Amino acid sequence: MADHLRDRFTAFFQKNVANPVMRRNPLQTLLETTGRKSGQPRRTPLGGSRVGNEFWFVSEFGDQSQYVKNIQANPRVRVRLRGRWHSGVAHLVPDDDPRRRLQSLPSFNSFGVRTFGTNLLTIRVDLDN
């Protein structure tokens, strides 16, 4: 029960407070998916790391995250890194150890994901450019 309330509070805070503010930062990393119902672009601030032509990150709510559901419906995404957009294809990587993956990602975001996440899931985006 406590985890459920924490998840609901975290989702509410992110959607209504943190994400709108963070999306305005031109250097904030963003994931853009296509809404599975609306067909409209959906932009989510997140942390992760580019390794060659791949971008890795961890979803704190796994397949319950709206952007993960959007990826499942359409894996074509865009990622904004340092103010520049990159197109790619997202892949859910359930066999990857998300806690270990977080150790290689930026510590500020990783702390939040570890603290509030209840269903961690690694995601890799194969970048076109």
Rank of each mutant, 00 (worst) to 15 (best):
E60T: 01
D7N: 14
Q72R: 13
K37C: 11
R101P: 04
R43S: 08
W85P: 14
R36Y: 02
V58Y: 01
Q40L: 13
M22N: 12
P98W: 03
R23V: 08
W56E: 04
V79K: 02
S107W: 07
G83H: 07
D3L: 14
F55S: 01
Q103K: 15
V58C: 01
R99S: 13
V77E: 04
L46S: 03
V58S: 03
V51P: 00
P26E: 04
F12G: 08
S49V: 12
G52T: 06
V93H: 07
L31H: 06
L120D: 05
N129H: 00
R78I: 06
L31F: 02
L92V: 12
T115G: 06
S38A: 12
V79Q: 00
N109F: 10
L81E: 05
T118E: 07
P45D: 06
Q14R: 15
G83M: 09
R100W: 07
T115K: 10
Q64E: 06
S38H: 10
Q103S: 15
S65G: 05
P26H: 09
Q64G: 11
Q28C: 14
Y67D: 03
N16F: 05
Q72P: 14
D95S: 15
N19H: 10
M22F: 14
P98H: 00
F13L: 11
Q64V: 01
H91C: 14
G39P: 03
L127W: 07
P98Y: 05
S49M: 10
R124M: 05
P26G: 04
F108A: 13
A18I: 14
R82N: 11
V125T: 08
R23C: 07
T118L: 05
N25D: 15
G48F: 02
F12D: 03
R43N: 04
D126W: 02
S38I: 08
D126I: 06
F12L: 09
